[in-house]
Write a protein that binds this DNA or RNA. Sequence first.
DNA 1: CGTCCACTTGACAATCGTCAATAGCAGTGG
DNA 2: CCACTGCTATTGACGATTGTCAAGTGGACG
Lengths: 255, 255
Amino acid sequence: MFDTATTTLPQSQTKTSEQAARAANKPACPGCPVRSVGICGSLCGSGDADLIGSLSRRMAYPGRSVLMEEGGPGQFAFNVISGTVMLSKTLPDGRRQVLGFAVAGDFLGLSMRDTNGLTAVALGSVEVCRMQRSHLRELALQSSKFMSQLHEMMASELESAHDHMMLLGRRGVEEKIACFLLSLRQRVARRQAISPRVDLPMTRQDIADYLGVTLETVSRTLSKMARNRLIVIVPDGVRLLDIDTLEQMASLKAN
Amino acid sequence: MFDTATTTLPQSQTKTSEQAARAANKPACPGCPVRSVGICGSLCGSGDADLIGSLSRRMAYPGRSVLMEEGGPGQFAFNVISGTVMLSKTLPDGRRQVLGFAVAGDFLGLSMRDTNGLTAVALGSVEVCRMQRSHLRELALQSSKFMSQLHEMMASELESAHDHMMLLGRRGVEEKIACFLLSLRQRVARRQAISPRVDLPMTRQDIADYLGVTLETVSRTLSKMARNRLIVIVPDGVRLLDIDTLEQMASLKAN
DNA sequence: CGTCCACTTGACAATCGTCAATAGCAGTGG
DNA sequence: CCACTGCTATTGACGATTGTCAAGTGGACG
């Protein structure tokens, strides 16, 4: 039918988290670069400050390593400190849907179930703050304020899942690409100064699986946008030239 | 691009909840037909039993009435008791994505924000158990056990959103339809005996907007499946004949 | 220098969207 | 009772978008 057997990494190259991850053993919270953004931003400051710090551990995952595997035991939760993590789901026949990309400040493993519902892979090396889900659960049951913050974070995730469903079901290719570039830029801007330069640590295939098209279509559309002076394709990313037009393509696409 | 201005109901026909909804004023929880399924099933039995009952009110919404409107004030949360509610999101240019269909036992308004992220419309007349979100919030802050159940419900919603993203991005039309019919059958079966007959209270356009295709494609594909003796199209629904083949189409599609 | 990948580009084909005509059905009103 | 209207659904013809297949480029790395 469509792309059968797209991009499942050869298992040989895919290291499991335990082999690959390197514990940094630094103190977790104080001086953490994402304290202002994610769960810690709203949490560490408020009361149970270093309780969560004592339960978590700063770690580094190398590129292509698997933080969570779909169907595998969901032992850990992660707070991304630097780098990009790709979240995906795979059909039995190999077709893959990329659900999203987690950047600094994003939290993984919110659902707190004992089985992972998705796969999380590091794109390039990634620093995380890792903790046991069981500890997270206990903490949540003790403090309903904490719990309600987890709830709120999940509400955000659900909302962006809904936006993504809209994108997948009802937008055309150029629109998809424009949305993708602009939203990626926006997300990264939570931590860095906003810039016309957008890093793309993922492959074209990853982008394709995120947008529900093929890698050829992604490549062609990016080329077309470059021809039209909307973007410039640079190594490992793009530079956005005509942001106005891109935003117009992304939101209305009313030609 | 695709279908511009699909199916936004003429506002004249769309009654607002306050005009249309009829309070039944029955005692909420005892004898409620969905006690065993949704939030109440795991809640009313356990401690805060009739606390939530006292805060909620049984109501009837007529067909086409709007329970929540995207961007509107999110005053209420709902527990669906009977009927079907369609959840959707609309782009500024009118394109619509149907996010899902809520049936008996499903809960609406989990996010507890003060603004609705989506629109909920009754397909045919619907009975709900309605409560103030503010009450829900208070209740949740008091009992972290309750809160964690809300959290778990939202985790389920997120998971099915992920499945739907997979469907929208990576499945072909026949596959989409087969998945749709089978999952609808499955969901309704939580409350009724499982049956080859599947009611379709929504229009073809609704199905199309749910699956990310056009209404013509839905119609054609259903006709084709009927020609192939997989289903029979009956008034307001279909009857599934060859469930094995349908399941094969839905999960692997490996011909 | 050669291999491996990711990416690009082209040619072609298939799916699915668009446009249009028609059927069926319910509700309305003469 | 029967047009008449409006809506939903079906079906066909056609075309555009996008997937498939294939070839080729360029960079990284051994």
